[in-house]
Design a protein around this nucleic acid. Structure first.
Lengths: 182, 182
DNA sequence: TTGCAATAGTTTCGACTCGATACTAATAGT
DNA sequence: ACTATTAGTATCGAGTCGAAACTATTGCAA
């Protein structure tokens, strides 16, 4: 495969994302806001701050702060201040926020209709590319809790040895900003 | 593959595009402007108007008009008015515009470093997905000139039987908004 | 313990996107 | 000769984007 195909691959990824974004713009949420909600749904309770999202999206705290402001105002998320560290803020999805994520969308429909094998190949190669990109970029991987070297399994859920916190079964499947590959 | 994987696939596509966009924002071009330049580089001389780009990107004429205005002002493209149809405008890349497209970028580097087979699988599955999405969306395919049923090959390049125009070899490889699969 | 430095988050700035809407000018069809 | 359609533009309000300046808190070291 040559240079040409590489360019085309890049353009396809961007175009797909763009068409998905266009369908998002229609509603009351823009793509940045939608990306924030999606992240919140996948991140554990230690990883839902403006800083974490900024790092995940490759953005800045200032920008993300604005996005959360809009989301709070529209009732998609609520703010929760930490009493341990009075600087820290965490955001939680409201019922409305959860519904917005599950809303039908163009890209999701397209993916669901793909042939099983091709779909599987797509996911595999996207994961490879994603890893490559993050390495290139010096970004953190933002892996899942139960794949972490600070994770220890318990009968019901698990335990984080870094933060000394018990974890529910659901939580062990979520993104953690402290995650380091086992 | 279940619902979960579909969601994850969608998120990966969006995240990849987002990280690529972030690296674009750094310079003097934003993602929308970059998408416009990329399109111009791939579209033939009959397909470089605001309307065509709007349709390609799933956007509106008003928005695209603004984007071209910014690009002209910054010297990346030039305007060319048609004398046949005095409403029509076409944009051409300047030297600066061509250079901007060839500039190194995060996603391009990531793709170039992938294993050949995985890269090929990625391109194939993205094409399948893209076709599925466009069908779903009722959008035009924006195929390449020489794959068109109005195309007829000539010794040097080709000829468009719809527009009655001769085509250079390079032009036969470009996107045409009139294209209909052969 | 006082005195910074680092961290978390916010605000403001200017350029720009986004869809929607209302507009002008040119062309096509009846 | 009308009228509908098409091509492009201007303007609006909400929001994004990075950058930079800002506040409040926390951590560390002398």
């Amino acid at each position: 495969m040559g240079m040409e195909d590489d360019l085309y691959t890049r353009e396809l990824i961007n175009r797909l994302a763009r068409l998905d974004a266009t369908s998002a713009w229609k509603g009351d949420l823009n793509p940045a806001q939608k990306a924030a909600l999606t992240y919140l749904a996948r991140a554990n309770r230690f990883s839902r701050s403006p800083s974490h999202l900024a790092e995940y999206l490759g953005s800045t705290r200032g920008t993300i702060s604005q996005t959360f402001k809009a989301l709070v105002q529209k009732g998609y998320v609520t703010e929760r201040r930490s009493q341990a560290d009075k600087r820290a803020i965490s955001f939680d999805l409201t019922e409305k926020g959860v519904q917005a994520i599950d809303a039908p969308n163009l890209l999701g429909r397209g993916i669901s209709k793909m042939d099983q094998q091709i779909k599987k190949d797509l996911l595999t190669s996207l994961e490879v590319l994603s890893r490559q990109l993050l390495k290139e970029n010096g970004s953190r991987a933002f892996g899942v809790c139960n794949q972490c070297r600070h994770f220890s399994a318990r009968k019901n859920g698990g335990h984080c040895m870094l933060l000394s916190e018990d974890l529910s079964p659901a939580e062990t499947l979520k993104i953690c900003h402290e995650q380091e590959a086992a």
